[in-house]
Design a protein around this nucleic acid. Sequence first.
DNA 1: ATGTCTACCGAAAACGTTTTCGTGTTGAAA
DNA 2: TTTCAACACGAAAACGTTTTCGGTAGACAT
Lengths: 340, 340
Amino acid sequence: MMRKKVTLKQIAKELDVSISTVSKSLKNSLEISEDTRQKVQAFAKLYNYKPNNIALSLKNKKTKTICIIIPEIIHHFFATVISGVENVANENGYNVLVCLSDESFDKEVINMEMLANGSIDGFIMSLSKETQQKKDFHHIVEVINQGMPVVMFDRVTNDILCDKVIIDDNLAAFDATQFLIDKGFKKIALITTVDYVSVGKLRTEGYIKALKNNDLKVDENLILRIEDTENFESSIENLILNNELDAIFAVNELFAVTAIKLARKHDIKVPEALSIVGFTDGIISKYSTPSISTVSQNGIKMGGKAAKMLIERLESEEEVEEQYKTEVIETELVERESTK
Amino acid sequence: MMRKKVTLKQIAKELDVSISTVSKSLKNSLEISEDTRQKVQAFAKLYNYKPNNIALSLKNKKTKTICIIIPEIIHHFFATVISGVENVANENGYNVLVCLSDESFDKEVINMEMLANGSIDGFIMSLSKETQQKKDFHHIVEVINQGMPVVMFDRVTNDILCDKVIIDDNLAAFDATQFLIDKGFKKIALITTVDYVSVGKLRTEGYIKALKNNDLKVDENLILRIEDTENFESSIENLILNNELDAIFAVNELFAVTAIKLARKHDIKVPEALSIVGFTDGIISKYSTPSISTVSQNGIKMGGKAAKMLIERLESEEEVEEQYKTEVIETELVERESTK
DNA sequence: ATGTCTACCGAAAACGTTTTCGTGTTGAAA
DNA sequence: TTTCAACACGAAAACGTTTTCGGTAGACAT
């Protein structure tokens, strides 16, 4: 019952023809007589012959596999990106290798070096926090210099020339803040990350720009920058208690939902007494109570676009080079129950 | 600046030695003189030589890659499983290819056939709903018969002999129901899936067993079986309104959180007037308000175990065969705010 | 008999490794 | 001087393909 995979060589031997003949027959080459072709094809079908992908990869110098490196798969946003990548990759006959950097620089480097040796045709990646902090991108540069295309998404850097797909974090944050201002709120706090996280920094800038644009003064006391390792609950609690806030703009779901929880803890009603806007339209925003108004970044679309760009570069054959593009995926403010 | 990967052949030519000599030198073979070794190694380092993985795969008939096929990556539980798989895979030098079946039988088949031709060393998979419904497992049987190991997890089937890792869905549901009974609740409803979803069926059985065990009668009106495509909100709403329920046991997070939302809509307070227990400890349960008491199935552990079993089989060399094991991962009832 | 054309097929190279086996050179022992 | 081991290295096969380039046989015309 246990039938190992059959190879061209075995078929050739069995049928007493050459390997070439078998190969050509299976490809319906006209070089081979009708008779022989039929015979070979019948035999191949009987034994369920399928060409060995590895051998093909070696010959073609193409693996039809792309790798996506992300910091965390647990984050809903990254999961949707993978989903988007997988979709268009599959449509184009590519497989997707998933690597998790775990926000670690070393893991990112190891993964890239390990795979840049023929295993895959190209990378799609979002930088780990540690990499963004160190600003060390040599591993990426090296890969690109070897001629392997890289597409970066979401957490990108200007220090690397390659295709990118991002959202306009600055604008999205600007719009979200403006949305709160338009509702008449004056004291609008910001819960953000430390500045080395590229998207956090951009969103902070957007927030500030919106305030200035409306002649509201920027109060540093209302800006809470949260370190990654920090236990941030008490910081947020203080922010809420020490200021009579009208609204909060949080740069991710977790910060937003935590703010809601802590507000409720102190009997501050959301949205009646405090409005909250988050960032990233994930599970939390949709199912929390109240559900959270948030900036939706379409991960599926981002992943799909990134995959499309990568595959186009892979198949455009030979280096149109230096025509790197940065695609901006539009965001959308979805209004839910946490704002009034 | 653009330096393509260097091969043994190129090094050999450059240094005017044979390919064999280069290969052996890099492996520090004693066959080669100290002098030559140094020379070759220096040159290789200079040109950043790394062996080509594809060539190695072809030679060794091992790719050091395993594939995990899941129905959906968006589901938090599956994301955690991937995370677990990735961890132990990486520790053992394996890469992880992720395929999404999208709950579709055809995609599952295509993916497996596509990859079973040398691209990977083994599969870890959870069945798609459609596959479970059709009960057609020929693609999996074929792969196994080719000698490629398969580990199934979570959504498994008795029709296939292979390693498996599951939770005791029946027992977990039993315990959850018993937990509600112990609190003195009599009218306990069940929100579950249709029976062809293996885990849904098992959980339903556990619920029934617990009721019977406590001499509570099983009321079919209190059992809501939800079709996949169905818009289930109104069904749940009816369930809640037409019965004076004490508690609800839901077989997944989504059902649980929806029940909470609908109860609140009709001013039924959770947990004061209605207690709710869910299944799967994901984002929703943790961050919903009230947070949801739920059966936690440790996805990381499940994925890790599955990967471990697969890798052990891959490396145990040659068919200890037919010693298939089924590992049961223990679950845990985490008590939160949705029960009193 | 010679030449040419076509139909059909096989040998071999190539992709990049690893490994077995052989071979030539050296120096020392007999 | 002969013999033999030790040493250093290379040739070649193998993994499974695809593809180019010949080559042979027969048919037909000259």
